[in-house]
Amino acid sequence: MKILNLDEICRQLISSAPRQLEPGHPLGTRLLSVEYSKSAKEIKTYPLLSSQRIFFLCWDFCGRNQLRAAMYPAPDRFCYRFAFESGAKTQRHTHDYIELGYVVKGNFRQNISGKDIVFHEGDVCLIDKNCIHQDYLSCQDSLVLFFGIENNMFEEVINEHITTEKIITFLQTALMKQNYLQQYIHFHPAANARKEIEPCLSLLLTELYENKTGASYICRGLLLRIFKILSTDYDFSLTREQQKNISWSVFEEVCSYIQTHYQSVTTRELMERFHFQRDYFNRLIRSKTGMTYSEYLQSIRLEQAKRMLIETDLTISEIAEQTGYHNKGYFYRIFTKKYNMTPGEYRKFI
Rank of each mutant, 00 (worst) to 15 (best):
L6F: 02
D7L: 13
I9V: 12
I14W: 03
S15Y: 10
G28Y: 11
T29C: 02
S33H: 13
K38R: 12
S39A: 05
A40D: 13
A40S: 10
Y46H: 01
R53Q: 15
F55T: 00
L57C: 12
L57A: 05
D60N: 12
G63P: 05
N65L: 05
L67Y: 02
L67I: 14
L67F: 12
R68C: 01
A69H: 02
Y72F: 11
P75V: 03
R77T: 10
Y80G: 15
F82G: 00
F84Q: 08
E85K: 12
E85R: 12
T90H: 10
R92K: 13
Y97F: 14
I98G: 04
L100M: 14
Y102N: 02
V104E: 01
I112Q: 03
K115M: 08
D116N: 11
D116T: 08
D116L: 09
H120L: 06
G122Q: 03
Q134P: 04
S142R: 01
L145N: 04
F146G: 11
G148M: 05
E150M: 06
N151E: 09
N152E: 15
V157Q: 03
N159V: 04
E165F: 01
E165A: 11
K166Q: 10
F170I: 00
F170Y: 14
L171S: 08
L171P: 00
T173M: 02
K177V: 04
Y180F: 11
Q182A: 15
H186P: 06
A190F: 09
A193C: 05
R194Q: 15
I197K: 01
L203W: 09
E207Q: 14
A215Q: 11
L222P: 01
L222K: 00
L223T: 04
L224T: 00
R225N: 15
F227E: 07
I229Y: 04
T232E: 13
S237K: 07
L238S: 10
T239V: 10
R240V: 13
R240P: 04
K244S: 08
N245T: 03
F251T: 03
Y257M: 06
I258L: 06
I258H: 02
T260K: 14
R268Q: 07
E269V: 04
E269H: 10
L270D: 08
M271V: 14
H275R: 07
F281K: 03
R283I: 14
R286T: 07
K288R: 14
T289W: 05
M291Q: 15
T292C: 07
Y296F: 13
Y296H: 08
E303K: 12
Q304D: 06
K306R: 12
R307W: 14
I310E: 09
I310R: 03
L314G: 00
T315Q: 07
I316F: 04
I319M: 07
E321A: 10
Y325Q: 03
Y330P: 02
F331C: 00
Y332Q: 10
F335K: 00
F335I: 11
T336C: 09
K337I: 00
K338Q: 11
G344C: 07
Y346A: 09
F349S: 09
